[in-house]
Design a protein around this nucleic acid. Structure first.
Length: 641
RNA sequence: GCCGGCGUAGCUCAAUUGGCAGAGCGGGGCUCUUGUAAAGCUCAGGUUGCCGGUUCGAGUCCGGCCGCCGGCUCCA
């Protein structure tokens, strides 16, 4: 007799035999594209049998959960291929799916080279073509341990020790791996796999541990999807700020000056200056006072601040002069403490907000430098807010609002927010850390902003809120940061006189909204693909006289723009008009204004807006006024007509 | 710092097995009275990242260093 049970598949109640698997159910319902299923909200393997009354939702390659299953199986196939390729002489570490594909970490007897990836891809395709069924089985921890000991699988042994419950294995012919799954039913369910990168990776991310070899890959159902993916990478490359920095003549980094040190060219420096002007104005409006501090300070200052104890590995070495020892500053805060301490402060003065575009220098390991996004010398849009404990929450909320406003001015809406908690190396008491962390979380919740926790990623003196912006390749870069600090004020013995005449310790907030101008600028270049909005563009207008005879008229127009404080540049007719238009487009000039005899007679201009095929004609006055408006309101590139 | 890759003119890239370092763009000069994504001619431009080695001969092969790219670790 067949025992039946009822399940609920995407809203339909269905009777199925008790021993029917999700796979059989999917087949019956002709859901052939199902890769796994959410059973009562939990992602499961199609091999599972759903319990009575289960809510079942099949997932496909279109769902991120489905992609993860797909990629996870792809990583096993990669490991299987490697097992053949290395003739079994390898140790497996881990091979998870990630945001845009998968990887597998191996311990191999020799170092792989990049052109061997193609060989591996060949073996992978064979494994896929053979359509090897993938089976799952479980065993006791003891059995698994015995198995790993016999095969010398030291990494798996270590993973086993941390496993809760019964270990499960996935096996495809002569390859098997300790794995929680879920996985596809057969290697034949995979389409095309491309191995993308070969890299070193420390076992469990531990610098002191063994270095493994990591192979990254992507997997797609069709060849076409792979081609699209490759095209997307090509497009992302065109937005790379390092490439655009050169093409648009914004900045460069020179081996002679030194790695991680930025040389700003006029166009880059002018855009930066606009950003800074905006920043200064908004900060003045928000009640910040401007300060400026030196690039060097005696070592004692860094002893008091704790930097020499906790931050030394990032600091450039000592300079000795006249029996004094100096250090280049890696942070601005100790100086701002000095300003606060330069006289007695009353509770009436608080909150005090000191802001500085402070250039700092930090030693970063050579392997991590990356264009403008990771450098050794950079300018923080730094500020320190001193407030009474009861003012903290309000300050934080105001700050979050300020931060999101600043970012949205530059068109950034997609960022991720993290609260970084107490690291291993910290100063101060645990309950203060907790208090500070909670106030950060509260402020975020009050503001209705979603966030994740970055455990142990706080600075030594306090927890922080970080906002991360993605670059053209979707890599995240920490920009805005808001940090609560109970510790450095104590170290500098910072105090104010309270209403009752007693000295009180203020709470300090460190904050940088761009984070660093360099990094922010780099993200901004990629965000706009180099096509800066008119208010930022160093030269928003190019004027192109059709004929040398129209030069004078072009100059009149330039003068009119100049009167409205708008920078323009006349591109003389020594080159063909087509050529100059082409150059304007390649240089991503917001507006190319074309003036020939027709325009001269009508006292008009023809405006070709960047990104538009069509141009439009309007009077000179209209064009100037309209552009002035666009600049004042910080609009993106918009047709003038 | 670690693993893998790369380094030829300002930029993008060529240069058979080791055999005279080249092109396009960009730059300078000249010509062209030029209407919507590249006018023509011409000239200049290089210690092939640096140092050492092998060789009759090295851009090419070997070693060391530096820098860059992709990851790891770390971070604004």
């Amino acid at each position: 007799m067949i025992v039946m049970k009822q399940v609920n598949v995407m809203g339909d109640k269905i009777e199925i035999p008790d021993d029917q698997s999700l796979y059989e159910l999917a087949k019956k319902l002709e859901k052939n594209e199902a890769l796994g299923a959410l059973v009562n909200g939990e992602l499961q393997d199609l091999r599972e049998q759903p319990p009575e009354g289960a809510e079942i939702q099949f997932v496909t390659y279109e769902d991120s959960a489905g992609k993860h299953i797909y990629w996870h199986t792809a990583s096993h196939v990669l490991a299987h291929a490697m097992q053949y390729y290395m003739d079994g002489d390898l140790k497996l570490a881990i091979g998870p799916p990630v945001d845009d594909g998968f990887y597998y970490d191996f311990d191999l007897p020799r170092n792989l080279s990049e052109d061997e990836l193609e060989n591996l891809e060949g073996i992978i395709q064979q494994i896929i073509q053979r359509g090897i069924p993938i089976e799952r089985y479980s065993c006791s921890v003891e059995e698994a341990r015995q198995k790993f000991k016999e095969s010398g699988a030291e990494y798996k042994l270590e993973l086993l020790d941390e496993l809760d419950g019964e270990p499960s294995f996935y096996r495809q012919q002569d390859f098997e791996d300790l794995c929680g799954g879920p996985h596809l039913m057969s290697t034949g369910d995979l389409g095309v796999i491309k191995l993308t990168k070969l890299a070193g990776a420390y076992w469990r991310g531990d610098e002191t541990g063994p270095m493994l070899q990591r192979v990254y890959g992507v997997a797609f159902q069709t060849e076409t999807e792979l081609e699209e993916y490759e095209k997307m990478l090509e497009e992302a490359k065109k937005r790379d700020h390092r490439r655009l920095g050169r093409e648009l003549d914004l900045f460069h980094i020179s081996e002679e000056v030194g790695p991680g040190l930025i040389i700003w060219h006029p166009r880059g420096a002018e855009i930066r200056q606009e950003i800074e002007n905006y920043w200064r104005n908004r900060h003045r409006e928000e009640g910040y006072r401007s300060v400026r501090t030196p690039h060097l300070a005696q070592e004692e200052l860094w002893e008091v601040s704790g930097h020499l104890d906790h931050y030394k590995q990032h600091m450039f070495p000592r300079m000795e002069m006249d029996d004094r020892n100096y250090r280049v500053k890696p942070m601005n805060c100790p100086f701002h403490m000095q300003i606060f301490n330069s006289r007695t402060r009353s509770y009436r003065d608080l909150p005090i907000r000191y802001a500085e575009l402070g250039t700092v220098y930090r030693y970063e390991k050579s392997g991590v430098l990356h264009g403008l996004l990771r450098v050794r010398g950079f300018t923080q849009d730094d500020a320190h807010i001193y407030c009474r404990p009861k003012q903290l929450e309000e300050e934080l909320q105001q700050l979050l609002e300020f931060t999101t406003e600043i970012l949205s001015t530059f068109g950034f809406k997609d960022y991720e927010i993290f609260v970084s908690t107490r690291p291993d190396d910290y100063v101060g008491s645990e309950d203060r850390w907790e208090l500070a962390t909670n106030s950060l979380k509260n402020a975020l919740e009050e503001a209705g902003l979603d966030y994740d926790i970055d455990p142990g990623e706080g600075v030594y003196y306090g927890p922080k809120i970080d906002l991360k912006i993605r670059d053209s390749l979707d890599r995240e870069w920490q920009c805005s940061t808001i940090q609560v600090d109970f510790n450095i004020p104590e170290r500098f013995d910072v105090a104010y006189v309270d209403e009752d005449g007693e000295e009180q310790r203020p709470i300090m907030i460190h904050r940088a909204l761009f984070g660093s101008i360099e990094r922010f600028f780099g993200c901004l270049v990629e965000h706009y693909g180099g096509a800066f909005p008119p208010w930022l563009a160093p030269t928003p207008v190019w004027i192109l006289p059709v004929d040398p005879a129209n030069r004078e008229y072009a100059e009149e127009i330039a003068a009119q723009f100049r009167n409205e404080n708008i920078n323009s540049s006349i591109q003389p007719a020594s080159e063909s008009l087509g050529k100059r238009i082409r150059t304007a487009i390649k240089q991503k000039i917001p507006y190319a204004i074309i003036v020939g005899s027709d325009e001269e007679e009508a006292r008009s201009v023809e405006v070709r807006t960047y990104g538009e095929e069509e141009s439009n004609t309007l009077s000179v006055d209209e064009a100037v006024q309209r552009l002035r408006q666009i600049i004042d309101s910080r609009q993106p590139i918009t047709p003038l007509g």
